[in-house]
Design a protein around this nucleic acid. Structure first.
Length: 433
RNA sequence: UGGGGCGUAGCUGAGCUGGCAAAGCGCCGGACUGUUAAUCCGGAGAUCGGUGGUUCGACUCCACCCGCCCCAGCCA
């Protein structure tokens, strides 16, 4: 194309110039001899004004044919006008229809049911709200990379197709040549530990899969997880890294995504309160706190969603609950030397009832203890031979955690459900679009 | 997988002590030279999720099936 096209977000610096903008028709309003069309190009919305007496008859006729979500190229003069949303508008001189859209476009600027919207997710993405969420997501992903890059972490990509290792809950399986079944990864952690022994400070960033039949607002079957693993970090170092990361992400969102958070009507004062250090609560103390608040959860049990809300209710920042009983946690967590009934781990609970955002732990670095735990859990030691090698050949203190990207996004954006935090959510009853 | 709820026009949604299926948005036709989810007038559009049953008569009551939502467990 030889013609230059302008993007809506940059028009404030093109006042007085004749430009052409390409995009999609979002709304059309006519009042006889003056008509308005709102154009969306992905960078913003632009009101275009068509005055019948100021344009050629064919342009006016073309405007009359416009339907919602038709793609168009609109030419006109950029001008500042207080009546225009955003303060700038286009005085149309020419209009070309690129791709007409039939009248059946299903999404209207009004309330829709969630099932309908998810069935039309590919079109729902065009809404201002979904764009705002996507922009926050993209910013947070970039922020995560920046955070680790600045600390000289190596990014490591771990396999998605794996043999049966990792955690216990549901696995998606697929045929894998003569090797039997492969499973979609539920975590990259064990590979991350191998990488940490090789390269020191690493993190993974990728999709993970859980075939859990859970239908809650806090679960997806496919979600993105970031898993740092750090050689020589103990459990306390691990928590410091977590609170540094989380407070950095919030700070970054406040700094660079305030228009998007505004679109989402997020209460910013809640986010402005997020500063490291976060509160730390021993599991046993958490249980006592819960008993004072009427919970019947007993020592040894994992905390339920209601328990998490009760704990978080008293605080304006995320809360670490640390050192859970062994039986409530995974086999690879290191026994707590101060209380062998427990392991050195932490869950980071997000404020406002958003639940568990991070799960982390110091890893068991003693060969015999780790093997013992594998056997206790009824796992096949042969499958963990390579993992045990990491303790056999120069074992090392190390810790890491997994942070759920969608949960973090949902919390920072104030979304009621994880399904909006990713472009095409995968849930138990949702495989398409 | 357990508990609760819902399914009525393209969308949202009232009707459900059984008696001719509201309304708004969208769409179509008309009016309007500054609209902001424009407004005003007129119009079309519904085998009431499916199958069977009770009844003179079922959107309404019953049974089964299908789909979805919320909560819980599992976890990030």
């Amino acid at each position: 194309m030889t013609l230059a096209f302008s993007r809506i977000s940059g028009l404030s610096s093109e006042v007085g110039r004749i430009v052409t903008v390409r995009g999609w028709v979002t709304t059309v309003r006519s009042s006889g001899k003056v008509a308005f069309l709102v154009l969306r190009d992905g960078t913003g919305l632009l009101q275009c004004v068509v005055v019948k007496s100021a344009v050629a008859q064919e342009v006016w006729d073309r405007f009359a044919q416009l339907t919602l979500e038709s793609s168009v190229a609109v030419t006109g003069e950029v001008r500042a006008d207080a009546r225009a949303p955003g303060g700038y508008e286009l005085g149309v001189t020419d209009l070309a229809i690129v791709g007409a859209s039939p009248l059946s476009y299903p999404i209207q600027p009004k309330e829709h049911g969630i099932d309908f919207l998810l069935d039309h997710r590919h079109l729902w993405l065009r809404s201002p709200r979904q764009r705002a969420i996507a922009m926050v997501r993209s910013e947070l992903e970039q922020a995560i990379h920046d955070f680790f890059y600045a600390r000289e972490f190596l990014r490591v990509d771990t396999p998605i197709l794996t043999a049966a290792i990792g955690e216990r809950s549901g696995l998606f399986s697929t045929e894998y040549f003569d090797e039997g079944n492969a499973f979609l990864a539920q975590t990259g952690q064990l590979y991350g530990e191998a990488a940490a022994a090789a390269w020191g400070k690493i993190y993974t960033f990728g999709p993970t899969f859980r075939a859990e039949k859970s239908k809650t607002r806090r679960h997806l079957t496919e979600f993105w997880m970031i898993e740092p693993e750090v050689a020589w970090n103990d459990s306390n170092d691990n928590m410091v890294l977590q609170e540094d990361l989380v407070s950095y992400l919030v700070e970054r969102a406040l700094e660079r995504c305030s228009p998007q958070l505004g679109e989402l009507e997020r209460d910013l004062s809640k986010l402005e309160a997020i500063r490291a250090p976060f509160y730390r609560l021993e599991y046993g103390d958490a249980i006592e706190l819960l008993h004072r608040k009427g919970s019947t959860t007993r020592w040894g049990e994992d905390l339920g969603a209601e328990d998490e809300s009760l704990i978080v209710a008293d605080y304006d920042r995320p809360v670490f609950v640390m050192n859970y009983p062994k039986e409530a946690k995974a086999f690879y967590m290191k026994e707590n030397p101060n209380d062998p009934r427990t392991v050195l781990c932490d869950d980071l609970l997000a404020p406002e009832g958003y639940g568990e955002m991070i799960g982390g732990s110091q890893r068991e670095d003693d060969y015999d203890r780790l093997l013992g735990r594998i056997v206790e859990e009824g796992l096949d030691p042969a499958a963990y031979e390579w993992y045990l090698d990491l303790r056999r050949y120069g074992t090392f203190v190390h810790s890491g955690f997994g942070i759920g990207l969608e949960r973090t996004i949902a919390w920072i954006c104030g979304l009621p459900h994880l399904r909006e935090a990713i472009a095409f959510p995968r849930m138990m009853h949702r495989l398409r679009p």
